[in-house]
């Protein structure tokens, strides 16, 4: 009887949790279906009825957001949201969501192409610092390769080091030693590169300007003088240096620092 009782209770618990999972899966399936339908419909009417198309694109964004709110973190969802924001000419949010997608799918060719294209549409042209340009050329393997590729190279070279070291216990050949040193150097480079990436991800908050345009100030209040001759525009990327209530100090790609109202910005960690 006890066995029967125990079996019954386990069955009830399993059934309840399974039902919950199936129901959640159905919900997100439905959201994806609706989001895709809205996006496709918007594309079809975008030439003839652009305003209606905008509404549909916004609708698809809401559905995609619903999927994210349901706890699903997937680069493709953020990428799709970036596309929808791009279609409604919200360049800031498009770039913000593409960058978010990049965290999950760093090597995605479509994502990189769309991000590059969206960046080309920005009004502000902010060049990298000279030192950064030189570093990017010298350490191309750190800046140009995706996390996946770095991981793969690190793992292969790491395995190479230990397999060759093990072989050298039995066979003494200079060529093995040379390859082993090469593998060790490569694995060290990539380990350092990945550690730096991870540190940056954990300690540097990246963001994008969302407002159409915003006057950057020299301090954390609207009463400060503007930092630049021109206002900054949507899509401009930055990293956060300091946070003070409603204002954030940011650093642009060229190393210049300024203050912007928090409301005008989108931060990767907040989406």
């Amino acid at each position: 009887m006890k066995r029967l009782l125990f079996f019954f209770l386990v069955l009830v618990a399993l059934n309840l949790s399974a039902q919950e999972i199936v129901s959640e899966q159905k919900d997100v399936d439905h959201l994806l279906e609706e989001a895709t339908r809205a996006y496709q419909s918007a594309l079809e009417i975008s030439t003839d009825e652009p305003w209606k198309a905008d509404d549909l694109f916004k609708r698809s964004i809401q559905f995609f957001q619903g999927i994210v709110d349901a706890g699903i973190k997937n680069g493709a969802i953020y990428y799709n949201m970036g596309n929808a924001y791009f279609r409604i000419n919200d360049l800031g949010k498009a770039i913000l969501y593409y960058k978010k997608a990049l965290e999950f799918s760093p090597g995605d060719a479509n994502l990189l192409q769309n991000l590059t294209y969206a960046r080309s549409k920005r009004i502000d042209s902010i060049q990298d610092k000279e030192e950064v340009k030189i570093l990017k050329t010298l350490l191309f393997f750190h800046f140009d390769l995706s996390s996946d590729v770095k991981t793969l190279i690190f793992v292969i070279s790491f395995v190479g080091v230990w397999v060759l070291a093990a072989l050298m216990i039995f066979i003494h050949k200079k060529v093995f030693l040379n390859i082993l040193i090469g593998c060790a150097l490569v694995s060290c480079f990539f380990f350092v590169s990945m550690t730096v990436d991870q540190w940056a991800r954990a300690n540097q908050t990246q963001g994008v300007i969302l407002a159409e345009e915003v006057v950057a100030r020299k301090g954390d209040s609207a009463s400060f003088e503007p930092s630049f001759q021109e206002p900054l525009h949507s899509g401009t990327e930055f990293i956060i240096v300091e946070e003070r209530q409603d204002w954030l100090q940011i650093e642009l790609n060229d190393g210049r620092r300024t203050w912007l109202p928090r409301k005008t910005l989108g931060l990767l960690k907040e989406i």
């Binding site: 399936d29 699903i72 990428y79 799709n80």
Partner: peptide
């Protein structure tokens, strides 16, 4: 010019890990 297509299908609904999750 232009941006690429949207992603659809079941793989879109699979949660991923960011960064060096593979390692």
């Amino acid at each position: 010019e232009g941006i690429a297509y949207n992603y659809t299908g079941p793989s879109v609904l699979r949660s991923q890990n960011a960064g060096l999750s593979g390692l």
